[in-house]
């Protein structure tokens, strides 16, 4: 589904990604871990199309398309979804209107008819249950005054509505208490199937107790320095990132 080859990116003059290689197939969950400043969130942002970063080398193929050539909106329409680490507050735009516009833009791109109001509402109610979010929250201005947990649940609600092929969760666990974490993770798990894939970007292992990955990759200095199964995450939790840093230094 997603093939990243030798990806380099910088912000200003600062190189952040220094040659990432990664292959993600349908049905898989990949966890990207690493210490602060290793480039985890940059990787997520580059895939979603944030323009603050300049790709200097490498390629990204997503379902046969050159992802790097696409605008952020076209990436979303092709099936990429990034759950933001810091969801943006937008006064005056309700989540409901936002989702209606987004969904219909995506449908239009795919040559489907716009959803009528009734079908939209029905779909929304169904997806609301997944993340235990209520309608009054969705009628309010997007994320404005939401708690940390409500913001993250709203991200997963949006993901449920848009049914992406590849979901990238950028530090979705940050700022969540254990109950909110469980709700968010349950939502993600219910959305998993053999046709979609998930990349979980996280600093800590605890999210991976709930969203169990097939592969774990450790990012350090803008490169994947170690890959393994879910046990790698436990090892990291036990030994800390210094262990990886030392290994890299020795090599």
């Amino acid at each position: 589904m997603l093939t990243i080859k030798n990806l380099h990116a910088k912000v200003g003059e600062k190189a952040i990604l220094n040659g990432i290689d990664l292959k993600v197939n349908a049905g898989e969950v990949h966890a990207i871990m690493g210490p602060n400043g290793s480039g985890k969130s940059t990787l997520a942002s580059v895939l979603a199309g944030r323009e603050d970063f300049e790709v200097t080398n490498g390629e990204v193929d997503f379902l046969g398309k050159n992802l790097l050539e696409l605008d952020p909106e076209d990436r979303a329409r092709e099936g990429i979804f990034m759950a933001f680490q810091y969801p943006v507050e937008i006064p005056g735009v309700s989540t409901i209107n936002f989702m209606k516009t987004a969904l219909n833009q995506i449908r239009e791109y795919r040559g489907q008819q716009a959803l009528d109001a009734v079908s939209f509402l029905q779909l929304m109610k169904e997806k609301m249950k997944l993340v235990e979010i209520n309608q009054s929250l969705l009628s309010r201005s997007l994320n404005e005054g939401f708690s940390g947990g409500e913001k993250k649940r709203n991200e997963i609600f949006q993901m449920a509505m848009l049914e992406p092929k590849l979901a990238i969760l950028d530090e979705t666990d940050s700022g969540l208490d254990i109950d909110a974490l469980r709700i968010v993770a349950n939502g993600v798990n219910k959305l998993r199937n053999k046709n979609n894939a998930t990349i979980v970007v996280t600093h800590y292992q605890r999210l991976l107790d709930y969203i169990v990955p097939d592969y774990v990759h450790v990012l350090y200095n803008g490169k994947i320095v170690k890959s393994g199964s879910k046990e790698l995450a436990l090892e990291l939790e036990a030994k800390g990132y210094d262990w990886i840093k030392k290994e890299v230094a020795v090599a």
């Binding site: 979603a48 199309g49 944030r50 323009e51 605008d71 952020p72 909106e73 990436r75 979303a76 329409r77 979804f81 990034m82 933001f84 969801p87 943006v88 937008i90 936002f98 989702m99 516009t101 987004a102 969904l103 833009q105 995506i106 791109y109 949006q158 848009l162």
Partner: peptide, 16 residues
């Protein structure tokens, strides 16, 4: 940042 957020959900730039 708000503009990117809307676009990342599939909304065309002028509409966002």
């Amino acid at each position: 940042e708000a503009l990117f957020y809307l676009r990342s959900r599939g909304i065309a730039e002028p509409i966002a």
